[in-house]
Amino acid sequence: MNTVFREVTPLSNKDCFMIFSREKTEFTFPIHTHAECELNFIENAAGAKRIVGDSIEEIGDLELTLIVNPNLEHGWTNHNCHSKEIKEITIQFHRDLLNDQLLQKNQLCSLREMLQRANYGLTFSRGAIEQIKERLYSLYSEKEGAHSVFKLFGILYDLSLDTSMRELASPTMESDVKIYKSRRIEKAYNYMLENYSREIHLSDVAGLVGMTEVSFSRFFKKRTSRSFVDSLNEIRLGYATRMLVDTTTSVAEICFACGFNNISNFNRIFKKKKGCTPKEFRENYTESRIFL
């Protein structure tokens, strides 16, 4: 399989970060990856499509997404956007700008957790975006010197306090379940990731972690904010979307290979979670890619 376009950014090892501001009439850059972390702000582009890993969503008039995974494919396409006054600010920084030793400090725990979650790509609530929007514009106009770095730290920290931030790509894109701070949750997720193609019952996983079904179900929902069934379906859909993107395997074959018991159930769950059918997802993703 060909690889997706990998961007080489102008950020040098001597720079703390780079910031770009542009006004444009359309989105033309293809789905891509890059080594650097990226905070991307978009204004006046309601109806455009955001693609991050296996997540495809239509955005509103304010958009802010954080990507820190160097292998996570992402991009924006015109879709239903008719605006000719799109504003975009992109900040790119090295992952070690906030090194592990610094992030272990108690005062930065929310920032550490946000960066862990951003391995899947994060989108932020409208309230959080409105809070820091003018600071992003100000940062662009004062991008030189150490004060600009401290301003960026302040923006990232305030975003880390957004209780409504949301992960985009599914867990299959980056198998990092330690963000839930629970060995039982980690063990349950690893079991589902390893056995998603087989029939899995709640009793199987509950027994694995030494809990009753009722207790585990409540514990799982409290720690992950998702039900066991939703999480299992999310994992299976994650593998399904990768196969839709990276292979020519038929939808029916993908359905059964990913643990769904019939094609109608697969189509129903897929459309409910992704907003389109598996066939439409494949077509939407393929048309936005460029291959080397």
Score class of each variant (00 low, 15 high):
Met1Leu: 14
Phe5Lys: 04
Glu7Gln: 02
Glu7Thr: 03
Thr9Asp: 08
Pro10Gln: 10
Cys16Gly: 08
Met18Pro: 02
Met18Ser: 12
Met18Val: 12
Arg22Ala: 13
Arg22Ser: 14
Glu26Ser: 15
Thr28Ala: 08
Thr28Asp: 04
Phe29Ser: 11
Ile31His: 05
His32Ser: 06
His32Val: 09
Thr33Ala: 06
His34Tyr: 05
Ala35Ser: 10
Cys37Tyr: 08
Leu39Lys: 05
Asn40Met: 12
Phe41Glu: 02
Asn44Lys: 13
Ala48His: 02
Arg50Asp: 13
Val52Thr: 11
Gly53Val: 01
Leu62Pro: 00
Glu63Ala: 03
Glu63Met: 11
Glu63Lys: 09
Glu63Pro: 01
Leu66His: 00
Ile67Glu: 05
Asn71Cys: 05
Glu73His: 03
His74Ser: 07
Gly75Arg: 07
Gly75Cys: 08
Trp76Glu: 08
Thr77Arg: 08
Asn78Gln: 15
His79Thr: 03
Asn80Asp: 14
His82Gly: 03
Ser83Gln: 09
Ile86Asn: 10
Ile86Arg: 02
Ile86Ala: 04
Ile86Trp: 07
Ile86Pro: 02
Ile89His: 07
Arg95Met: 04
Arg95Trp: 04
Asp100Ala: 11
Gln101Val: 12
Leu103Gly: 05
Lys105Asn: 11
Asn106Val: 08
Leu108Val: 00
Leu108Thr: 06
Glu113His: 09
Leu115Thr: 02
Asn119Ser: 12
Leu122Gln: 06
Leu122Pro: 02
Phe124Leu: 03
Phe124Gly: 03
Gly127Lys: 11
Gln131Thr: 15
Ile132Trp: 00
Lys133Thr: 02
Tyr137Ala: 10
Tyr140Phe: 15
Ala146Asp: 12
His147Thr: 15
Phe150Leu: 15
Lys151Arg: 15
Lys151Met: 12
Leu159His: 01
Leu159Val: 00
Ser160His: 09
Thr163Val: 13
Thr163Pro: 00
Glu167Asn: 11
Leu168Ser: 06
Pro171Thr: 12
Met173Lys: 01
Asp176Lys: 14
Tyr180Asn: 07
Ser182Ala: 11
Ser182Ile: 11
Arg183Gln: 12
Arg184Met: 14
Arg184Leu: 13
Tyr189Ala: 09
Tyr191Val: 11
Tyr191Pro: 02
Asn195Arg: 04
Ser197Trp: 04
Ala206Phe: 00
Leu208Asn: 08
Met211Leu: 14
Met211Val: 05
Thr212Tyr: 07
Phe219His: 14
Lys222Thr: 15
Thr224Gln: 04
Thr224Tyr: 06
Thr224Ala: 09
Thr224Met: 05
Arg226His: 10
Phe228Asp: 11
Ser231Asn: 01
Glu234Ser: 10
Arg236Glu: 08
Arg236Cys: 07
Leu237Arg: 05
Ala240Tyr: 06
Ala240His: 04
Arg242Pro: 07
Val245Phe: 10
Asp246Tyr: 15
Asp246Ile: 03
Asp246Pro: 01
Cys255Lys: 09
Cys258Glu: 00
Cys258Lys: 09
Gly259Ser: 01
Asn262Gln: 11
Ile263Gly: 03
Arg268Ala: 14
Phe270Ile: 12
Lys271Gln: 15
Lys272Ala: 13
Lys273Val: 02
Gly275Cys: 09
Cys276Asn: 01
Arg282Phe: 03
Asn284Trp: 08
Asn284Tyr: 14
Glu287Gln: 14
Arg289Asp: 04
Ile290Tyr: 13
Phe291Arg: 12
